[in-house]
Simulated assay, not measured.
Amino acid sequence: MNSRAAIKIMLWLFTAVTLFHLCIILKLIPYEITWGGRLENDSEMYVFESLSILLNVFLILMLLIKGKFIRQMLSIRVVNIILWAFLFLFGLNTIGNLFAKTYFEKSFAVLTLASSILIWIILKEKSSKPITLK
């Protein structure tokens, strides 16, 4: 799989994840099945879900820049550093999901592991050498 395909898969995946978190905020999905079953009230849910949506939208933005779907607002070096941070975060999240209280949340370990692999594919592909004028 090439980097471009991995980016497209990640964009679809995290658009769906963002919609999932919006459904939790709208109370279409009960928050008790998320965050390892540790949220105790609506206030906590709104904070955690809002943070999650912001992080997902930020990741989507970085992927759009990396895939050259939008104008480059940050250097590719900065985007790559941010993607490495997300790779680390997804690795930790995979472990955390395995120890969640609910089976629903445990199943998200597959999603976070897949995200780690896809980001690895995106980061490992070397960009073409810059064109130099002689």
Rank of each mutant, 00 (worst) to 15 (best):
L133I: 12
S127V: 05
I95K: 15
W120T: 11
L26A: 05
L19Y: 13
L54S: 00
I25P: 01
M1K: 10
E49T: 12
W35Q: 07
M73G: 12
L51A: 07
S43R: 08
I7R: 02
F48M: 15
V78F: 11
I53G: 02
E105P: 03
I81H: 10
L98T: 13
F86P: 01
N2I: 02
E44S: 12
F88V: 10
L11H: 14
Y31D: 05
L64N: 02
A85L: 11
F99E: 08
L113A: 10
G37C: 07
P30D: 03
V79H: 01
I131V: 08
K129D: 15
S3T: 03
I33M: 05
N2F: 02
W120C: 14
K124V: 15
I24E: 05
A109I: 12
F20G: 11
L89V: 11
I29C: 04
T34N: 10
N93F: 07
V79T: 01
K8W: 03
I119Y: 00
L55T: 11
H21S: 00
L92I: 09
L28K: 00
V17C: 10
N56M: 11
V79C: 01
L22V: 05
K126V: 09
L55S: 08
L61D: 06
M10E: 01
S75T: 15
K8G: 10
G96M: 14
S52A: 11
L74N: 03
K68L: 07
I117G: 00
V47K: 11
E32S: 07
I122W: 02
N2W: 04
L133C: 07
P130G: 12
F14L: 03
S75R: 13
L113G: 10
I119G: 01
L22F: 08
I82R: 07
L51M: 01
F86H: 05
F48Q: 10
F14R: 12
I33C: 05
I33N: 08
F20D: 04
M62P: 14
S52C: 07
L83F: 05
T18D: 15
T102I: 08
L87R: 13
V57S: 11
L87P: 14
